[in-house]
Computed example of a mutant assay.
Amino acid sequence: MTLSLSRRLLVLAVAVLLLAGLAAVLVVRAADRADRPGTGGPEIAAGGVTLTRQGELLFLNSGQGPHRGALASVPAGAPQSARTASDLDCRRFYAAAGTGVCLRSSPGALAQDNKALIVDADLRTLRSLPLAGTPSRARVSPSGRFAAWTVFVSGESYGSAFFSTRTAILDTRTGKLDSSLEEFAVSMDGRDYRAQDVNFWGVTFSKDDDTFYATLATAGQTHLVKGSISRRTVTTLAQNVECPSLSPDETRIAYKKRVRPGATLWREHVMDLGTLREHALAEKRSVDDQAAWLDDRTVAYALPTDGAADSTDLWTVPADGTGAPRLLASGASSPSAPR
């Protein structure tokens, strides 16, 4: 049976309405997903974020959507709950005692707008400094006085055959900037050491506002060094230590250890600074991050999100080597726990 012209127009109109309704549903669902760090991830909305609110966990939101890269906060006891996103966007971030360091990177391989922002507890910029390369690591001393950052001057990662880093320390009170730790005097095995290939990265600070630990790389080896800001010196302590992180009680460091020479595979370890004895943690996946201590018993670190490009998840593991890795927050990086 042949449909009349009027019936054909009616069918066409109904079809258009149905397609329009379907499109609207898809748009709403897409918008809903855009405000989540990943499929099925926690909700995130703009709001007030401060650096001194106790009982909260701070991190950078790495999920897709309008708040990608934003500093966010959640209750520390419910890290998978809804997130509050600030308007501060960073590539790397760390905070302590109401002082934050935000490393920004503009798009492109030849980015000229890389900056380190020093922010106060309400995320107001106190100082902006140019960076010599791509942001890699960031730390603030427990008192908030000193901030440190590492950038890649060339190369793409710590797994590259050739790369160069530059690590700086800023006194946020006086404004004095040590623009490169390569200018510090190095003592290795009790002797002065000088070499053209010296690189530093991954600073972590003590509570005394002078002592710090970091990684020194030279002659194909990485070393844990203990440094003094006032004396501008570093002394080697142990080999095969990268990206150290000092525990809150200052008796141990967490760090990544290369498990096979020449391979880009690292295993998270903890070392007792009194004895230099080390033990591996329960995380057996390769961790290319500077871990952060959430408390004296727990270490947090970022790992790539399964099936998602340019996104990481935060995981935790007991610092004593027992237990098993646990997901802390999906679509997140650069954790800080205000104390």
Results as ranks from 00 to 15, higher is better:
Thr150Trp: 10
Thr215Val: 07
Thr235Met: 12
Asp171Val: 04
Ala138Thr: 03
Val198Ser: 00
Arg191Tyr: 05
Asp178Pro: 07
Trp201Asn: 07
Thr236Gln: 08
Val241Gln: 06
Arg232Leu: 07
Leu216Arg: 04
Asp189Pro: 00
Trp201Ala: 13
Trp266Ser: 14
Gln239His: 12
Lys256Phe: 01
Glu242Phe: 05
Gly175Leu: 08
Phe152Val: 13
Leu170Thr: 10
Gly144Thr: 02
Thr236Lys: 08
Phe162Gly: 00
Ser160Val: 04
Ala195Cys: 04
Thr264Leu: 14
Gln196Ile: 08
Asp189His: 07
Val198Cys: 00
Pro244Gly: 03
Leu129Trp: 01
Trp201Cys: 05
Trp149Ile: 11
Lys207Arg: 12
Pro248Cys: 05
Ser128Met: 11
Tyr255Met: 03
Lys257Phe: 05
Arg137Asn: 09
Met188Arg: 15
Arg231Ile: 05
Glu250Pro: 00
Ser206Tyr: 04
Leu170Glu: 03
Ser154Pro: 07
Arg232Lys: 15
Asp209Gly: 07
Val225Cys: 05
Leu246Ala: 02
Thr174Cys: 00
Ser230Trp: 05
Asp208Ala: 06
Ser179His: 13
Arg191Thr: 15
Asn199Tyr: 11
Ile229Ala: 01
Pro142Val: 06
Ala138Glu: 01
Gly220Cys: 11
Cys243Trp: 11
Gly227Arg: 07
Gln221Thr: 13
Ala168Leu: 01
Ala263Gly: 09
Thr222Arg: 04
Val259Arg: 13
Ser164Gly: 10
His223Pro: 02
Phe162Arg: 10
Thr211Ser: 08
Ala138Phe: 01
Asn199Pro: 02
Ser128Lys: 08
Thr165Pro: 03
Thr174Val: 02
Ala219Phe: 12
His223Glu: 06
Leu177Met: 03
Ala132Lys: 13
Arg258Ala: 03
Ala168Val: 00
Ala217Gln: 14
Ser141Thr: 05
Ser245Phe: 10
Thr174Phe: 06
Arg194Thr: 14
Asp210Trp: 02
Arg258Thr: 11
Thr218Asn: 06
Thr251Cys: 07
Tyr255Asp: 01
Ser157Leu: 10
Thr215His: 10
Thr264Gln: 15
Tyr158Lys: 00
Thr264Ile: 09
Arg267Asn: 15
Val198Phe: 00
Glu182Gln: 12
Leu246Val: 03
Ser136Glu: 15
Arg231Met: 06
Ala195His: 12
Asp171Phe: 00
Ser206Cys: 09
Gly220Lys: 09
Thr150Val: 08
Arg139Glu: 13
Pro244Ile: 09
Phe212Lys: 09
Ile169Cys: 03
